[in-house]
């Protein structure tokens, strides 16, 4: 769960990292040693949200956007 939250945070703040999460999520699954359920969230509901993020997310919005993604992650993994 914490790994996934960290990935989400990076995807919000770093567009280069975001593109890996969007288009090569399996690289992150390997690198971060994600569980199957975490991988499914990354490639499913989390990707859907990340796809919708503006480029860039402005720093003033980090907290709100990351909070929303964290809620989604917790909900999806429970």
């Amino acid at each position: 769960m914490d790994k996934l939250k960290e990935i989400a945070k990076r995807a919000v703040e770093d567009y280069g990292f975001r593109q890996i999460a969007q288009w090569s999520p399996d690289d992150l699954v390997d690198q971060w040693d994600l569980t199957d359920s975490e991988a499914n969230v990354l490639k499913g509901p989390l990707k859907d949200e990340i796809d919708q993020l503006p480029v860039p997310v402005e720093p003033v919005d980090y907290e709100a956007v990351e909070g929303r993604l964290n809620d989604l992650i917790e909900e999806s993994l429970s």
Partner: peptide, 11 residues
């Protein structure tokens, strides 16, 4: 580009 906008972290 989107890359530049994304990586500078703010417009």
């Amino acid at each position: 580009t989107p890359q530049a906008r994304g990586s500078t972290q703010s417009s």
